[in-house]
C-alpha cells in the first residue's frame, strides 16, 4: 500500500464521504446557473474567500482579510467563558436539586419556567444589564448551555444507585463525602451527556449574540457579510462555526473517555474510543 493510501486508511475515509458528496453536488448546482452565482457561490469560491479570510493573500474577503484567527478566537473565548460558567453552575445546582428535596421544591419550579424562554428573547435585557461588549454575548452562551447541563446532572444524581449510597454510609461516609465520592461519580455519565449537548448550544448562541451585541467574532462576520451580500463569506463563517463546534465536542468526548474509562467494555458507548 502506498503512503497516501495508508494516510487515507488512517483518517477513516468514511467520515469524508458525506461531506464530499455534498460539496460535489453543490458545486454542480452552483455552476449550472440555476441561481445567480452571488446568491449560491460554489464551494470553490467559498473556499477562496475563506482562504483569504484566514491567510489574507488577495483581499477577496476585503476588510476581513487575514482576520480569521482573531475572529475565531474572540468567538471561542465567549463560548469558553459562557460554557465554563454554565458547566460549573449547572453541575453544582444540578447536584443540589437532585440530592436535597427542599432545594428541588424551592428552586426547580422557577428553573422549569425559565427553561422554555428562548435565549434570544433575553437579548434586550442582556444589553440593558451588561451593555454592548462581551458580557451580553457570554450571558447568552451561558443561557444556552446551562439548562441541558443542569437537567442532565439532576437526572444523573436522581438515578444514582441507592445501594452504593447505603454501602458508603455503612463505611461511615458523611453526607458531603457521599456527594463527592459516590453521587458525583455515579452522575458523571449523565453530566457528560449534558456537557456535550451544552457545547453545541453554546456555539449556536454565539452567532445570535454577536449579531446584535458585539463587533467581532465569526457570528459578527456572518451577519455583516449578509448585509453586503457576501454569501461566500456567510457560508465560510457557517462552516467555521461548524468545524469549531465539532472540534470542541471532540475535546469533550476525549475528556469523557478519560473520566469514564471505568465503563470500558461494559457499555455500547465504550466501544467508540
Amino acid at each position: 500500500m502506498t503512503a497516501i493510501g495508508k494516510i487515507w486508511e488512517r483518517f477513516a475515509w468514511e467520515k469524508a464521504v458525506v461531506p464530499l458528496v455534498i460539496l460535489v453536488a453543490w458545486e454542480a448546482v452552483s455552476r449550472s446557473g440555476l441561481l445567480p452565482a452571488a446568491l449560491l457561490p460554489p464551494p470553490t469560491v467559498v473556499l477562496h474567500a475563506w482562504g483569504d479570510w484566514v491567510f489574507g493573500f488577495d483581499e477577496t474577503s476585503q476588510a476581513n482579510s487575514g482576520r480569521w484567527f482573531a475572529d475565531a478566537l474572540s468567538s471561542a473565548m465567549r463560548v469558553a467563558a459562557g460554557y465554563a460558567i454554565a458547566a460549573a453552575s449547572g453541575i453544582l445546582l444540578g447536584i443540589a436539586i437532585g440530592w436535597w428535596r427542599w432545594v428541588e421544591r424551592t428552586v426547580e419550579p422557577t428553573i422549569q419556567m425559565l427553561r422554555p424562554v428562548p435565549p434570544v428573547s433575553w437579548i434586550p435585557v442582556a444589553i440593558i444589564w451588561f451593555g454592548i461588549a462581551n458580557k451580553p454575548a457570554i450571558f447568552l452562551v451561558f443561557l444556552g448551555a446551562f439548562f441541558p447541563i443542569l437537567m442532565n446532572t439532576i437526572h444523573g444524581v436522581k438515578t444514582a444507585d441507592r445501594n452504593l449510597i447505603r454501602a458508603a454510609a455503612m463505611m461511615g461516609a458523611t453526607e458531603q463525602q457521599l456527594l463527592r465520592h459516590v453521587v458525583f461519580p455515579a452522575a458523571l455519565p449523565s453530566i457528560f451527556a449534558g456537557l456535550r449537548i451544552g457545547i453545541g448550544a453554546a456555539w449556536m448562541l454565539t452567532v445570535t449574540a454577536e449579531m446584535v451585541a458585539v463587533k467581532s467574532g465569526l457570528g459578527y462576520v456572518l451577519w455583516d457579510s449578509y448585509y453586503f451580500l457576501r454569501y461566500d463569506l456567510v457560508l465560510a463563517a457557517m462552516a467555521s462555526i461548524g468545524l469549531l463546534g465539532y472540534a470542541t465536542d471532540g475535546l469533550i468526548k476525549l475528556l469523557m473517555s478519560v473520566a469514564l474509562h471505568w465503563q470500558h467494555g461494559s457499555t455500547l458507548q465504550s466501544r467508540e474510543g
Binding site: D161, A173, P185
Partner: peptide
C-alpha cells in the same frame, strides 16, 4: 461491616480502591 446481596461496588473504582474505600473517606 456489611456485605450485601449484590456486591454494591463503586463501578468507577478498581478493586483495590473499592476494598480501601473506607480509608479514602
Amino acid at each position: 461491616g456489611m456485605v450485601f446481596q449484590q456486591a454494591n461496588l463503586m463501578p468507577w473504582l478498581p478493586v483495590w480502591e473499592n476494598v480501601a474505600f473506607h480509608l479514602r473517606l
